[in-house]
């Protein structure tokens, strides 16, 4: 009896008069094929895991940051207070400090909304507020809180500039009108050194942490994270999104996404992130719709790789 391979549904459009079910068949064992495939893949995975292991570079702790690059912590703290860091000037979803990116004039970033509010000053002030037994620091905090926004900004900006002039070394900063800012920055460094900074930022007010948003933003506002990444060839302009530490394969399937960041106009655009995303969405849609796009769907006919795939069949059924 004929095996019915056509779906029972009767509402389909008329199809080509013949299909796979009309061809002669040969013996085939799907289950055996799958079981062998499973065994092979399991053994191969175990072998690769045993030989190459996997990367496990410890996460950077705030204490390590303070240890390795204390001046960077000071500069970042001053920047947060002055409102000049990446997170302070970010825009959605963290704050209203910037318009955010857009594609073809569509402000997608802004439309997402400020749903994860982050005050960059609080990245410094809140951990300091928890410090006990340091009268000088408490006084500095009091002075800061008792001043106008303009005054705060002018102190912090002056200190940022002075640090810049001193090559980033707080010890070499010329005297100036910095108010409590140097004390606050030094205070943050000491909290970082103590190992208490992550806790203060991640689980403020709750026993359970888990949300590292503010810690990562603070860390990323400094230079140390990026320096460490670039030293491992993970920079954004070093195909960083798809690479992994060491010689591990990382995410090679991200090559196209990462590729656009390396070339113009994206490599020099302020809207690169949004544009690359939009482009990738478009390309994905194109890939998905290949069966429906004349020209694209004909490529396999024009470049006859299929003659290799079905060479047995074509040998037995030469074209007439």
């Amino acid at each position: 009896m004929a095996t019915v391979t056509r779906p029972a549904a009767g509402r389909r459009a008329p199809r080509t008069e013949w299909d796979s079910h009309d061809f002669p068949t040969r013996h085939y064992d799907l289950v055996k094929e799958f079981v062998i495939a499973l065994v092979v893949m399991t053994l191969l995975t175990a072998a690769l895991a045993a030989i190459f292991s996997s990367p496990d570079d410890k996460a950077i702790t705030m204490a390590r940051w303070a240890q390795a690059d204390p001046n960077d912590v000071i500069a970042t703290a001053a920047g947060e207070l002055a409102g000049t860091t990446t997170s302070a000037t970010y825009g959605a979803p963290y704050n209203h400090a910037a318009e955010g990116q857009s594609v073809l004039g569509v402000p997608l970033q802004k439309w997402g909304g400020v749903r994860i509010p982050v005050s960059s000053q609080d990245l410094v002030l809140q951990p300091l507020a928890g410090v006990r037994g340091d009268p000088a620091l408490s006084q500095a905090l009091g002075t800061w809180r008792g001043s106008t926004t303009d005054q705060q900004k002018s102190w912090a900006s002056a200190y940022v500039d002075a640090l810049d002039k001193a090559g980033g070394d707080p010890a070499k900063v010329a005297t100036g009108d910095f108010g409590p800012v140097p004390a606050l920055a030094a205070g943050l460094l000491s909290v970082a050194r103590s190992g208490a900074l992550e806790g203060a930022l991640t689980s403020a007010g709750t026993f359970y942490g888990g949300d590292q948003t503010r810690s990562v933003l603070l860390l990323a506002d400094g230079a140390y994270l990026e320096d460490t990444a670039v030293a491992q060839h993970l920079g954004g302009d070093q195909w960083g999104m798809m690479n992994e530490v060491g010689n591990y394969p990382g995410q090679p399937w991200m090559w196209l996404y990462t590729f656009w960041y390396q070339v113009k106009p994206f490599s020099t655009s302020d809207n690169a992130d949004a544009e690359v995303w939009a482009l990738m969405m478009l390309l994905t849609l194109l890939l998905m719709l290949v069966p429906f796009i004349p020209g694209l769907r004909d490529v396999p006919r024009w470049i006859p790789v299929h003659r290799l795939v079905w060479r047995d069949y074509y040998r037995r059924h030469p074209r007439t």
């Binding site: 979803p93 997608l108 994860i116 949300d211 948003t213």
Partner: peptide, 13 residues
């Protein structure tokens, strides 16, 4: 974040 999704799908969390 650039496409507005970061507001809901927070990869820093």
């Amino acid at each position: 974040n650039a496409i507005g999704v970061g507001a809901f799908f927070n990869i820093l969390n």
